[in-house]
């Protein structure tokens, strides 16, 4: 309509319209950037990676699938109970493990890192065969005293291809797409 009006709208109206657009943009930017960053996962237990790794454990002790299959797997309650069936510390978080076991419940971990359904990713292929350290994708977990709130890095096709090109991994479409 505005294009066809014989006279331009008055200055005040122009400022209101312009200001409205700017305001909408700013509000949108704030809201969406917050939504993008703030899906901080709340895990059932405030698991301390640093403490476990400092006590001589390795990633594969709990993420048992890493060296043998495509999925790394998140540990079942049973894995925790192997060590924590009796209290090792006075930690309230540790007690939660035994409470869950007593209630016959399972640990409902929130899975953070996930590739899309049309991508095939094998941990075994990357960790055992290509000998890539866990930290390259998952960050320095030996420093993480609380469960990570978000993935260490974004798993975009760009990130995958960059590493594959630099390290002569396959770059055929079908090497990853399924």
């Amino acid at each position: 309509m505005a294009d066809w009006s014989p006279m331009p709208p008055p200055l005040a109206a122009r400022w209101t319209i312009g200001g409205g657009f700017v305001l909408c943009f700013l509000v949108g930017a704030v809201v969406f950037s917050a939504a993008g960053r703030n899906h901080a996962a709340s895990q059932p237990i405030a698991f301390n990676h640093a403490k476990h790794l400092a006590n001589g454990m390795s990633c594969t002790d709990c993420h048992t699938g890493v060296e043998t299959q495509a999925r790394a797997t998140l540990p079942a309650l049973e894995t925790c109970m192997n060590c924590h069936a009796t209290a090792l510390t006075a930690s309230a978080e540790e007690r939660k493990v035994r409470d869950l076991a007593a209630a016959g419940k399972e640990l409902a971990w929130v899975r953070l890192t996930q590739v899309p359904a049309h991508v095939f990713f094998s941990h075994r292929r990357h960790v055992v065969l290509a000998k890539i350290a866990c930290a390259i994708c998952h960050g320095p977990m030996e420093k993480a005293t609380a469960p990570p709130a978000r993935p260490f890095r974004e798993f975009t096709m760009d990130a995958c291809t960059q590493c594959h090109e630099n390290n002569r991994g396959g770059t055929e479409c079908n090497d990853c797409h399924r």
Partner: peptide, 25 residues
């Protein structure tokens, strides 16, 4: 090992490419 294709895309035989990946591994 095989994705479920969404509505609106074309699909075809892949010669079970996922099996090749598995066999290679």
């Amino acid at each position: 090992d095989v994705s479920v294709r969404p509505k609106g895309v074309v699909e075809k035989c892949t010669l079970c490419h996922h099996r090749l990946m598995q066999a290679r591994e």
